[in-house]
Design a protein around this nucleic acid. Sequence first.
DNA 1: TACTCGAGTGTTTTT
DNA 2: CACTCGAGTA
Length: 594
Amino acid sequence: MIDWSSNLNPTQYKAVTHRIGPLLVVAGPGTGKTRVLSYRIGHLIETGAAKPDRILAMTFTNQAAKEISERVSRLLDSEFSTECIHNGQKIPKISTFHGWALGFLKQTLGEDARLPVDEKDAGDLCQEAAKKLGLSNPKPQGLYECISKAKQHFPPRINGDEDMEALIQAYHGLLEKYGLWDYDDLLLEALRLLEHTEIKAKFYRDFPFVLVDEFQDISPAQYTLIKSMARKDGNITVIGDPNQAIYGFRGASPEFIHCFNTDFENVKTVVLDTVYRCPQVFLDAATSLIKDRSAVRLKSVRDRTPKIRIKPFEDPAAEAKWVARTIEQIVGGLSFVSLDSGTAGGNTLRSLSDIAVLFRAKALGNPVAEALSRQGIPFQRADTPDPLAQKELRSIWRLWEVLKGRTVRYHLLKLPGGKDLWNRKLPDLKPGLQGKDGPQLLSYIIDILDLDPNRPLLRALARAVKRHPHVDSLAVLLRNEADMLDINIEAVSLLSIHAAKGLEFPVVFLIGCEPGILPWKEADREEERRLFYVGLTRASEEIFLSHVKHRRLFGQMMHGGPSPFIADIPEKLLVREKAQKPKKPRRPKQKKLF
DNA sequence: TACTCGAGTGTTTTT
DNA sequence: CACTCGAGTA
């Protein structure tokens, strides 16, 4: 028997043990959101309120789904064994919106289900459609983005633009022709299915318990989906933080957290307000930035009360140099560089993995990366480009999919040589597949495509496949291998604020706090505030905000100075440090006198 | 098919 | 500033 109350604070306990009907959990940064979600799932199962296979939990990322799954099974495995869990399989379904939708479509439509395409292919198809229509070439890659934006709504919202409408139609024609769905279609098609009363009724029977993570990030279509996944008085739990809604640019809207109260009946709201991560000062600063600060007053349990340090600089190079120097001090100097060993400002020494440098746009990370390299400080960046964007890997992946039997005409068409060639070739290739495992299949493919297996890229791929000889999906493998921001690794993390969401670091440098950068020019002001909020609340011990006078971005000079947001933080929470004197003044001042 | 050259472009990101 | 993409040429 798990002792639920001793592992949870009273509000968390309330959320975990809530019985019947809709539940809205407002979970500020560091208040134990994931804990509540996984404990709630565990509690539903342990008390017998729900069979594991009657529970569906939805997340945005595979990463989050995996994390919750692991926590639930750890929780139940270690302390509570039921036949449901131990016989494997019957673990609650925890998946991403898109993953669930695809499974649901396959299950309901069987053979008629199409295959998903990624953004790249969707973009290419858009262009193909535009070309067919003879549309003037406005923006090559922006077309799909536009369409996708329209498809964040159900039904898709086209604002009366005729060209746009024609383009969408042509694009959908191509998708149909090749038997494909784009990512947005997965949700929209699932929604269309749920409009049938019998299908909806079956869904209600199958999953009487629905939970939704990161509720502040859902799009209108996703909200519609959630509404059709549960009755108005159903057992639906949503959890999120409206102040951390930072995905408006891709169609998310924090409004839905308010809609939930009116669209569902007798919603029970639980506000998690005890913060285990940040010191009170950081919380107060963060909340002072947000308009809607009335609702929740977050309370920290941490006793340290460090101030927020503000550092001005002349230019990005100086800022970066200071970041590198300070990091060196914080970790107690890298053996060979630091002479003033031991001091480190009287603070505890930290490891490199305790430190993150955060910024609004990836480009700002470059000077810092340079400075860190120069100082010999190991670092890692999160911005891994999509491996499948590379031509060779993409061809390999396409042929892999074809040979695995997930044949799509579109893949054949796009393979070097074109569809006809591959249609002729395929019958000869298929017999060669007998009993091949991953590595063998890969070298078979490399051979067929006549690629050089000794290229470093392909060697790396071969190694990755060797580690997982029984992979089915090369795309999943590549994505997981590329996604290597490993918190445990001994390195400083360089991250965009977006990428840092959900993470926590003892020491955070938030660089580029300048007008035009941190409120990004022409971006939604409130969302930019929330971004700043997210940035500030990543830190558990120390935070530095820095800004520069001049910054060249994309060849354009930005005029700097401190972000207006800094002025919104109560002065008593801040320590403003002096601008650094230029180290070696070119010409001594006295020359000028008289 | 493979290369160069110049114009154009440029937040944030998941599936 | 630095990169990608498409047109144009060999």
